[in-house]
């Protein structure tokens, strides 16, 4: 009887995010001139997957009560690297992918090492590392360009069996291969414990460092996967400040919409995926309602502001005013 209640309480944020997404997507589809055809689903899921990968990366760090402002830079760096390496024969392409993903992993690990052993606050440490990663990206691609193995790119952004968007299957595979093992491992539990209360976790002998380092490293890996996917999407690499900062900011927004608490220890990567989907759908809603594209940023901003203000309804339930202050 109480078993499912615990589960519900634990997954509340994720479920709300799922609800928001389904609601928005339903409005989108019912107003879309073509309806839910495989092509519409493919376009929507390709765009959403990019943001979802970055949001998942952010969520991993946020769960440990940290924040990663270098996510966008890792994303851009791996995009530039992939536009050099992921091409040629299948063997060369595979080698390039491994290299690109290792660079993502390495960037995340460096962030984790600086935060853990340098004992710097994540927010300022990742401002610094973000500048470095972006500089390297600029070195790789001073001008936009490059190319990618197009057969692979088309396969990854296409449809499986002519119906299911490949990018969605790809996301599902990542959840099953990375998130499920991680969240059930000791390191994964430690990451949650460290985010929830670092002192209690430390006193209970939880391996905080291992958990946090794993979270940062996997976060880099996921951001790198995002960069790789961007290359499949655009067939080229570009070191643009705008896309680095936009994706960093959007990743935070998606994580918040996805019910992951910025105070740490609450939420899941799956919530972040739905948060990202919902956030993208907000942007797309503009087009089906035939509003001027100029209004899109304002619309996105207002919806975001409304969504986060809605979250503070819980304040009304507070009995003791002291609980306002953490």
């Amino acid at each position: 009887m109480t078993e499912w209640r615990y589960w519900l309480a634990e997954q509340r944020g994720t479920l709300i995010a799922l609800g928001i997404f389904i609601f928005m997507f339903a409005i989108y589809i019912t107003n879309h001139p073509a309806g839910l055809t495989p092509n519409v689903a493919q376009t929507a899921s390709n765009k959403a997957t990019l943001l979802a990968l970055v949001a998942m990366a952010q969520a991993l760090v946020v769960i440990t009560a940290g924040i990663d402002l270098s996510i966008g830079s890792i994303f851009v760096l791996t995009n530039c690297l992939a536009s050099w390496l992921v091409q040629g024969t299948p063997a060369e392409t595979a080698f390039g992918i491994v290299l690109v993903l290792s660079v993502g992993l390495l960037c995340g690990t460096v962030n984790g090492l600086i935060v853990l052993f340098g004992r710097l606050q994540p927010i300022v440490a990742t401002i610094g590392t973000g500048a470095v990663y972006f500089g390297i990206a600029l070195m790789l691609r001073p001008l936009p360009g490059g190319s990618v193995n197009e057969t692979l790119a088309d396969a990854m952004t296409g449809k499986l069996l002519g119906v299911v968007p490949t990018s969605l299957v790809f996301l599902l595979a990542i959840v099953l291969l990375i998130w499920v093992p991680f969240s059930r491992s000791v390191a994964g539990r430690a990451a949650y414990a460290a985010g929830s209360s670092e002192q209690s976790a430390y006193m209970s002998g939880v391996p905080i460092r291992r958990g946090k380092l794993a979270a940062y490293a996997l976060s880099g890996l996921l951001a790198g996967t995002g960069g790789l996917f961007l290359t499949f999407f655009t067939y080229s690499g570009e070191a643009s400040t705008a896309s680095a900062s936009t994706y960093t900011l959007f990743s935070i927004a998606a994580v918040v919409l996805g019910g992951v608490s910025l105070y740490g220890g609450k939420g899941s990567i799956i919530g972040a995926i739905f948060g990202a989907f919902a956030f993208r759908t907000i942007g797309d809603l503009m087009f089906v309602f035939d509003l001027d594209a100029l209004w899109q940023p304002l619309f996105q901003g207002v919806i975001l502001l409304a969504a986060i203000s809605f979250g503070s309804i819980g304040l009304l339930r507070v009995r003791n005013r002291l609980e306002w202050f953490r």
Binding site: I127, G128, A131, V132, Y133, G135, L138, P142, Y202
Partner: peptide, 26 residues
């Protein structure tokens, strides 16, 4: 070049913070 500027900028911020911006150890 802009690339080198970004890298040096980031390295300076991190290394200066490592000098004195550290939170006390537990």
């Amino acid at each position: 070049p802009e690339a080198g500027r970004q890298i040096i900028y980031g390295v300076v911020i991190i290394s200066m913070l490592l000098l004195y911006g550290r939170t006390p150890s537990k």
